[in-house]
Simulated assay, not measured.
Amino acid sequence: MFDPLIRLRTEDLLELQQVHLYSELDSDPLNPEAKAGTVCGYTEWASANRKPALSFSWDWVYDPGTQRLQAQWSSLRTNLRVVDAQGEDLGVECTRLCVARLMTRASWERVIAESLDLVLTMPPDSRH
C-alpha cells in the first residue's frame, strides 16, 4: 500500500526552515468562517532544508477591520505526520498544532501580507 506521508518527531519538525512558495486571494471563497467584508485566500510553503521536502498549505481569512490574518488550520494540507519517539502517529490535530507553531515562528502572517500587499496590525511579540 502506498503511503505518501513523511513522519517526523516534533523536535525535528521544529528545526525545519520554511520557504513561502505562494499565496493567492480566493476569488470564490466558500469559507463558512468568513464574515462579510473579509478577504479569503490560501498559501503554500515548503521545507527548505529537508529532502524530500515537506509541503504545507492552508486557507486564511483577512479582516480589513482588524487588519489581521487568521489561519484556518482545519484546512491544513500537508504530507507530514508528527510521531512520538517510538514512531507512533500522534494524529491529525497534533500535526496541525505543530505546523501552526512552526509557521508562527516563520512569521507567516507578515510574509503573506507583504506578498499580497495587505496591511497588517501585528500584536507585540507575534513572532514568538
Rank of each mutant, 00 (worst) to 15 (best):
S23M: 02
A48T: 11
W58I: 01
L102D: 06
L5M: 14
L120C: 09
E114D: 14
T66G: 00
V82Q: 01
V82F: 08
V61W: 08
R9P: 09
A113Y: 00
A53K: 15
S75L: 10
H20R: 10
N79C: 02
A113S: 10
F56A: 03
T121G: 04
L5E: 06
A85N: 10
L5T: 04
L102W: 01
W73M: 14
A34F: 02
V39T: 14
H128N: 12
D28C: 02
S57L: 04
D125T: 13
V111G: 05
D117N: 15
W108Y: 11
E114G: 11
Q18F: 00
G91I: 07
L120V: 07
T38V: 08
V92G: 02
T78A: 04
N31F: 02
P32R: 09
A106E: 12
T10N: 07
D12H: 11
E93P: 07
D63K: 04
C40N: 08
H128D: 12
V99E: 03
T104P: 08
E33V: 10
R110E: 10
T121F: 07
I112S: 04
C98P: 05
S107Y: 09
L8Y: 01
E93Q: 14
S47V: 04
D59M: 06
D26C: 08
R96D: 05
L102N: 06
E93Y: 13
L118V: 06
P52N: 04
R96W: 08
K35A: 13
A71G: 15
S23C: 06
A106R: 09
L21W: 10
W108R: 02
H128F: 13
W73V: 07
S74E: 15
V92Q: 13
K35N: 11
Q86T: 15
E15A: 08
M1Y: 09
Q67Y: 11
K51R: 12
L5Y: 11
V111C: 06
T43L: 01
L5C: 02
P4N: 05
L16H: 06
G65F: 09
L14Y: 12
Y22Q: 05
R68C: 09
F56W: 10
H128Y: 14
